[in-house]
């Protein structure tokens, strides 16, 4: 039995691959930004003294972390449809991925918030800063810096997991691959190319987060020491 690979037959579809990869990256970018916001708010909410807000944030985080992503995507997809909302597959995919990664972000950010020494907050209170100012100036960036590796891994994971959105016919990379392999009967070649493209997308995201880290953490850039 010999293995015969015919890449040219598949590679002539490279515009489709590129379009799929671009859409995957776009999905990941939207879900990362929105998920980071949602997750940070949920982490703050979880830490408030208001039992209702704190409880709601806990239910959200636990509900998402204990159900499969595919089921969540279907819930959003069919749920919004049955409410009469006609949204594009892309919008539904962004919404579902945001809700999903937001829950994981919330847990990671909570760990970051808890790693801020009590004395930092007392010093800020002693300087008459408001609660919001303390979160913004004293807690947020050091918390992010402490959990930055975990946080960025989660967002790369999200980009990889977005392949599941092919199930609701969002035209991202995996959906494109499914289409090409059924068209060319060259499944192995197709998914090899797709795998390589996902690796490249991961590297692009990691480079992006590295650059963002340089902007966000000037102390680390200058001293090179962990916080």
């Amino acid at each position: 039995m010999s293995l015969q690979l015919d890449f040219p037959a598949v590679l002539e579809r490279w515009p489709s691959f590129l379009a799929g990869a671009a859409l995957t990256l776009e999905l990941a970018a939207f879900a990362t930004v929105l998920g980071a916001l949602l997750g940070t708010l949920a982490a703050v909410g979880r830490g408030t003294h208001n039992a209702l807000i704190s409880g709601a944030c806990k239910v959200y985080v636990e509900a998402i972390r204990n159900t499969p992503l595919l089921v969540q995507i279907f819930l959003v997809y069919f749920g919004l449809a049955s409410l009469g909302l006609k949204l594009s597959a892309f919008t539904v995919a962004v919404a579902a991925l945001t809700i999903n990664v937001g829950a994981y972000t919330a847990e990671i950010m909570r760990a970051g918030f808890e790693a801020i020494p009590r004395g930092q907050i007392e010093a800020a209170e002693g300087l008459a800063l408001s609660r919001l100012q303390i979160y913004w100036h004293i807690i947020l960036l050091p918390a992010i810096e402490k959990v930055y590796p975990a946080l960025t891994s989660q967002f790369v994971l999200l980009m990889l997991a977005s392949s599941i959105c092919s199930q609701i016919s969002a035209e991202e990379l995996t959906a494109v691959a499914n289409y090409i392999q059924s068209d060319t009967y060259r499944a192995f070649e197709t998914y090899i190319i797709v795998a390589v493209l996902y690796v490249i997308l991961s590297l692009i995201m990691r480079a992006g987060f590295w650059g963002l880290g340089l902007v966000l953490f000037p102390r680390r850039r200058r001293l090179g020491t962990p916080l």
């Binding site: 020494p117 010093a123 008459a128 960036l141 102390r219 916080l227």
Partner: peptide, 17 residues
């Protein structure tokens, strides 16, 4: 706290600033 300044044993400077 605008009228009162407080200094702690452990300094509590903000390390990222």
């Amino acid at each position: 706290r605008q009228d009162v300044g407080i200094v702690f044993q452990s300094y509590n400077l903000f390390p990222h600033l």
